[in-house]
Computed example of a mutant assay.
Amino acid sequence: MVKNNNLLILILAIGVFGILSTEMGVIGILPVIADTFGVTVSQAGWLVSLFALVVAFSGPTMPVLFSRFNRKRGMLFVLGIFIIGNLISIFTTNFTVLLFARIVPAFFHPVYISLALTLAATSSKPEDAPKSIAKIMMAVSAGMILGVPIATFIANAASLQWAMSFFAVVNAAAFVATLFLIPSMPAAAAISGGAQVSVLKKPIVWLSIAAVILINSAIASVNSYLAEFLSTISMISGQTLSLVLFVFGIASLGGNLLAGKLLANNARKSVVSYPIILGIAYTAAFILSHFFGPVVIAVVVAWGVIFAIGNNISQYWIASSAPEAPEFANGLFLTCGNLGITLGTAVGGFFLSGMGIRYVIVGGLLFLVLSLAAVLLRNFFYKGERLTA
């Protein structure tokens, strides 16, 4: 499989991009969905919030259930479910049907992402695994960040149905490529579900879970309100705001590749440094928030790149704590990420309503202090630990 690593990674990245675009792409077209289906925007928001809730719930369980099956068949099954859900979304005129067309695929979302991360690692030489995983994480970032403007542009230029068709086409492309270009991949070893879940008995796993939830909370508590922060405090709005957010997304893609190199060179140092460096970027944005040029540099260059590194750090920190159960560990990573987003968004909203938009950064800094403590605790108790993912 190492021989075909580049082709495999490319196909997996297309599939990951399609699935993440399906999940996040509707954010930009919620008003269009609300008008089309005769619901409020907040009701249309269920398409996002319920999807994320299902992913958080199924993250640790579904990858374990599928770990005994042929991996190629598992990927085809999940992609097929997403294609069917997308097709229903294109043609339905009932909001409840649309909601179910998204909720059902959400249960299988962690299966594909977990498989993609596991295969990226196992199909590479051990020293190159972080770089291969970083390429998958870049597809995750692309789906989360670029999927929104792409879907929004298509919906505004053509129609909602064409925007939904975009999701279906990407997933279908991944399905066809997987069917014809990826060989059969039987499960490497029949690790029982009980054996995989038993890694939760290890204190190192719980320290890693705590760190990852806190890191993602630190990111989400600020990033969820980034547009509001820039428009209200930095007076960046309209097309300029759209451009800044777009460049932020592009910078984050580069951050994924940088993360792979950092983790491959010195994983422990990279993880310990992350909360400190992000804290510096947050502090700079807080201090320079009223100055256009400096805040754009702080947000786009530093913040955008660092944001993407956080996803890679999170995946690596959990996967390295339970290398004997990779599917379960990657499922935990997805669950922790979604829990962190939920917690961080709520706390950021608390600071916003209580102190003002500028102070969402304070909430982020508090989470970073706690995440650094969790990382240092793991390093203290497991000094001789060999980091492998």
Score class of each variant (00 low, 15 high):
362 V>W: 02
357 I>A: 02
361 I>E: 07
362 V>K: 06
325 A>M: 13
323 P>C: 09
351 F>R: 01
342 T>K: 05
325 A>G: 13
340 G>D: 08
344 G>Y: 04
331 G>F: 02
338 N>T: 02
336 C>L: 06
355 M>I: 10
339 L>M: 15
353 S>K: 11
354 G>T: 14
345 T>N: 08
344 G>M: 02
341 I>A: 14
364 G>Q: 08
336 C>N: 13
349 G>Q: 07
330 N>F: 07
360 V>K: 06
327 E>H: 15
359 Y>L: 10
348 G>R: 00
362 V>T: 11
333 F>M: 15
357 I>N: 05
338 N>L: 00
323 P>E: 10
353 S>C: 06
358 R>W: 05
351 F>G: 02
324 E>Y: 12
355 M>W: 11
362 V>G: 02
348 G>V: 01
325 A>D: 11
333 F>G: 06
356 G>P: 04
364 G>N: 08
356 G>L: 03
343 L>K: 06
322 A>C: 10
359 Y>V: 08
331 G>Y: 01
326 P>C: 08
335 T>W: 09
328 F>G: 08
363 G>T: 00
357 I>Y: 07
325 A>H: 13
327 E>A: 14
327 E>D: 14
335 T>G: 14
346 A>Q: 10
338 N>K: 04
345 T>A: 14
329 A>E: 03
361 I>F: 09
336 C>I: 04
347 V>H: 02
327 E>G: 13
330 N>W: 00
351 F>Q: 09
327 E>P: 09
331 G>C: 03
363 G>R: 04
336 C>T: 11
358 R>N: 12
357 I>V: 15
329 A>D: 00
324 E>F: 12
359 Y>N: 12
360 V>I: 15
334 L>E: 08
351 F>P: 07
352 L>K: 00
348 G>S: 01
353 S>E: 15
344 G>K: 05
355 M>D: 03
337 G>A: 10
352 L>M: 11
334 L>T: 02
325 A>P: 15
363 G>E: 02
341 I>Q: 12
355 M>A: 14
322 A>F: 15
326 P>K: 13
349 G>E: 02
362 V>E: 04
351 F>V: 10
362 V>A: 12
343 L>I: 14
323 P>V: 09
344 G>F: 02
342 T>P: 00
338 N>H: 07
364 G>S: 11
328 F>P: 06
349 G>P: 02
333 F>R: 10
334 L>S: 09
340 G>A: 01
360 V>S: 00
333 F>E: 01
354 G>D: 13
364 G>I: 09
345 T>I: 06
